[in-house]
């Protein structure tokens, strides 16, 4: 038994040829966020505080698809969503459709602590943010040049599909653009457990590039993108629609609870058996201080550390596996 922490910056089709100038800042962010989380755990902060803190850091980093750096909807706007859950009490909070809140994860925490509800969305959530006096900025703060470009490319690719162009041309299109290496699917998340076995999970995202306005993914949905109970804490990333119907985060916990699987076995089962290949990645910790990071995509931006000194920062499958 000891503390453990794991975090992710999204799973997807990340080419191994990812240019160094795109890879390095993301690796640096993973290292920085892991350090922030480990320090907080060592300072006896509660896992709930730790996951919120780490996800805030990831939201503030423009290289990941959450908070600043969120991808754009079809209309070129941003609509951020997030959720947080405390394992011991199973209390949870979630938000969707945010356009001005600097740290969506902290608003999710406020929904959990300051309202009779669990989940607030769109105008009502923005109004609640103002009532609570949480930091808000103009929407343009979140929009990066890179994401404007990415939307443009996604729209072009989309037009091809809508026009029923033969798949050959489709493939050609695919090779040229979006070779910036991160998939269109990206999300950030963190799970943590302290040495008393208290667990928490948090996930935050800007959603899918070129998503329809109003689209809600798996990230704010308890049991899909985020889940924690007294056995484990899970944060998932990938294709939201697949994660939602697979109730991915809850299923890792359910397999441990109802089938007696270990954390690693449960995570591996969900990733390999329950969700189609190329669709999901997750990080999870157990009450015993175990950690696991599994995915069925090309790669997943991820990092973890445990009290006994183990630490890992990686994007693709490690050679030792």
């Amino acid at each position: 038994m000891g503390w453990a922490i794991a975090l992710h910056g999204g799973a997807g089709d990340i080419p191994v040829s990812l240019a160094a100038e795109r890879r390095r800042p993301r690796e640096a962010a993973l290292r920085h966020c892991l350090r922030v989380g480990v320090d907080a755990l060592k300072a006896q902060k509660s896992p709930l505080d730790v996951v919120e803190l780490v996800v805030r850091e990831l939201e503030n980093n423009p290289h990941y698809n959450a908070g600043r750096g969120s991808v754009l909807t079809r209309e070129g706007t941003i609509e951020m969503e997030a959720s947080i859950m405390d394992g011991k009490t199973k209390r949870c909070g979630a938000v969707s459709g945010l356009t001005t809140v600097v740290n969506p994860i902290s608003l999710a925490r406020l929904v959990m602590e300051k309202t009779p509800h669990i989940y607030l969305a769109f105008d009502g959530a923005e109004r609640f943010a103002r009532e609570q006096g949480i930091e808000t900025v103009d929407s343009s703060h979140f929009i990066t040049q890179e994401n404007i470009e990415r939307l443009k490319q996604a729209k072009e690719a989309n037009r091809v599909q809508i026009d029923y162009t033969p798949p050959i041309q489709n493939d050609k299109k695919k090779e040229t653009p979006i070779a910036d290496g991160d998939s269109q699917i990206g999300t950030v998340g963190c799970v943590a457990v302290d040495s008393h076995g208290n667990l928490a999970s948090a996930t935050s995202t800007g959603g899918l590039v070129n998503k329809m306005v109003g689209r809600i993914g798996d990230t704010p949905i308890i049991g899909a993108g985020t889940y924690a109970n007294n056995l484990c804490a899970v944060s998932a990333t990938g294709k939201g629609e697949a994660i939602m119907r697979g109730t991915v985060a809850r299923d890792v916990a359910a397999l441990m609870e109802f089938k007696g699987l270990s954390l690693k076995e449960a995570a591996a089962y969900v990733v390999e058996e329950c969700v189609p290949k190329g669709n999901v990645g997750l990080v999870a910790v157990s009450a015993k201080g175990e950690v696991t990071m599994s995915y069925n995509t090309t790669g997943m931006f991820r990092a973890c550390a445990t009290e006994d000194g183990y630490s890992e920062i990686a994007i693709w499958p490690s050679v030792h596996n």
Partner: peptide
């Protein structure tokens, strides 16, 4: 008298419906 913007269990797959 719910807060505007409140989402409950009914639309959530795995919660209200499965």
């Amino acid at each position: 008298n719910k807060m505007n913007g409140r989402i409950g269990d009914s639309p959530l797959i795995g919660a209200g419906t499965y």
